[in-house]
Simulated scan of single mutants.
Amino acid sequence: MSATAVSPPRAILFDRDGTLVTDVPYNPDPAQVRPVSGARAAVESVRAAGLSCGVLTNQSGIGRGLLNREQVDAVNARIEELLGPFDVWEICPHHPDDGCRCRKPEPGMILAACRRLGLDPSEVAYIGDIGADIDAATAAGATGVLVPTPVTRREEVEAADLVAENLAEAISLLLEGRP
């Protein structure tokens, strides 16, 4: 983890798959939603601190024709049942080849969430599990925190300024400036 001092943000945004819930590729089924260990406590601590919280997620399965928006919305509704309501959701439905500005590592979803929350990106942190998440935060001017999983590549960990072992440590780092 970096020793960089962190100013407490006014909002914390989360990646969905692999960060808040177990990654089930192109999941169309709310019954398959499983929060990762500590997800509910992490989100509740953000709310208890009086911060806005939201979820940003690439859902290229829509653009690939593997699932539809209604299925993604049903999965997201299940996530809210398990973790509580979020202030903002941003979803990129595009195929990776579409060249959109919202698909991470592009900053579009973070910038859109900031506009909806009335915040400057510098007042926002984004927690994710892969380099594209951190790259999106950096491109938007937000603080990125990487919480590696088995799919996170070593070079992504090495490139990240802020790395936390789990969601609780990421939240502590952001709210208290220390792990």
Rank of each mutant, 00 (worst) to 15 (best):
M1S: 13
M1F: 03
A3E: 11
T4D: 12
A5F: 07
V6G: 12
P8I: 04
P8T: 08
R10M: 11
A11N: 04
A11T: 06
I12C: 03
R16C: 04
D17Q: 08
G18W: 07
G18N: 07
L20H: 01
V21H: 01
T22P: 05
V24S: 09
Y26D: 13
N27T: 07
N27R: 15
P28E: 05
P28Q: 04
A31V: 06
R34Y: 13
P35S: 02
P35F: 01
S37R: 15
S37C: 10
G38W: 03
G38F: 06
A41Q: 10
A42E: 09
A42G: 06
A42T: 10
R47P: 03
A48P: 00
L51R: 11
S52T: 04
S52N: 08
C53S: 12
G61V: 10
G63R: 07
R64A: 10
G65W: 02
G65L: 11
L67I: 11
L67R: 13
E70D: 15
D73F: 05
A74K: 02
A74G: 10
V75F: 09
R78A: 07
E80G: 12
L82N: 00
L82C: 06
P85R: 13
P85I: 00
F86I: 08
D87F: 00
W89I: 14
W89S: 12
E90C: 14
E90H: 03
P93M: 13
P93F: 11
H94D: 12
H95S: 12
D97Q: 14
R101N: 14
C102T: 08
P105K: 06
E106G: 00
G108I: 08
G108T: 09
L111G: 02
R115P: 04
R115V: 10
L119C: 13
D120E: 13
E123A: 15
V124E: 10
A125C: 03
Y126G: 03
D129T: 00
D133S: 05
A139L: 04
A140V: 11
A140N: 11
L146T: 00
T149N: 11
V151N: 09
R153H: 12
E156C: 02
E156F: 03
V157F: 01
V157N: 09
V157E: 15
E158Y: 00
E158N: 05
A159K: 09
A160L: 02
L162E: 02
A164V: 02
E169D: 14
A170M: 07
A170Q: 05
L173T: 07
L175C: 14
G177M: 15
R178I: 01
P179K: 13
P179Q: 13
